[in-house]
């Protein structure tokens, strides 16, 4: 119990004194996971929309693959991305291993299937007649897609939250492709692991609390967007 109070006190202290190192770590967590989520949103919708709106052979297989992808273990993604990005690996020429870009890439791989999977079921859940109705009113195809997305806004924002939640909290991929380098790729989760291994439990606890606060703040904003003038 002492540890928890000590951690809370330390977290408050780090927050109030605006410790520059902690601030940088927190902002980098937000930046990396935020960008990864945005990229995943584009990829996720890019996959979910055509799959939802078209019938084609193998559609069930694609959906099953997407749903499996929602559970991709971060360490597996981390290992895979590391091997790809090695200097002597196929994408080595990019020279982004151990940079925030590599972490964004790995996290986008983790979040994309999550967002695609939830968006797909959201779009499939819309009333089947809606599409015909919109087209009958003379909408072009892009207009129809846009209206469907608006209609499914609630579950789509839930997809974004699930994607963001998945990557802001993961540590396996970030530590492998980022390297937990001080001042460059250290984020809240990797710093927590390191402080724990150094035996600085209060600091680790304080970082965990910051992580929870950050995740809550982002979700509060998204929830606000989601619940504001809900469709009907």
């Amino acid at each position: 119990m002492d540890l928890i109070w000590e951690g809370l006190r330390k977290a408050l202290e780090l927050l109030l004194t605006l410790d520059p190192e902690v601030l940088r770590i927190t902002l980098l967590s937000l930046e990396v996971s935020g960008l990864a989520t945005l990229i995943s949103l584009v990829i996720g919708l890019g996959v979910a929309i055509p799959v939802a709106l078209n019938e084609f052979p193998g559609k069930r297989l694609v959906i099953a693959l997407l749903n499996t992808g929602m559970g991709l273990p971060p360490v597996v993604v981390g290992l895979f991305v590391t091997v790809l990005l090695w200097r002597n690996g196929p994408l080595g020429f990019l020279e982004i291993l151990y940079t925030p870009s590599a972490m964004i890439l790995a996290q986008a791989v983790i979040a994309s299937p999550i967002i695609a999977g939830i968006s797909l079921s959201a779009l499939q859940h819309l009333p089947p007649g809606l599409r015909l109705q919109i087209l009958a009113l003379g909408a072009s195809r892009p207009q129809m897609v846009w209206l469907l997305l608006k209609e499914a806004r609630l579950p789509l924002l839930a997809a974004v939250m699930a994607g963001f939640g998945g990557v802001i909290s993961e540590v396996g991929a970030s530590i492998m492709v980022g390297g937990n380098i001080k001042g460059q790729t250290r984020v809240l989760t990797t710093a927590t692991v390191m402080e724990t291994s150094k035996g600085n439990f209060e600091v680790a606890f304080a970082l965990s609390i910051l992580l929870l606060v950050l995740a809550f703040s982002v979700n509060a904003v998204l929830t606000h967007l989601q619940q504001r003038n809900r469709p009907r």
Binding site: L35, L38, L94, E95, T99, S101
Partner: peptide, 10 residues
């Protein structure tokens, strides 16, 4: 805009 930033960072 954010992708551009990420690119610069790399």
């Amino acid at each position: 805009a954010s992708l551009a930033c990420a690119g610069l960072q790399a």
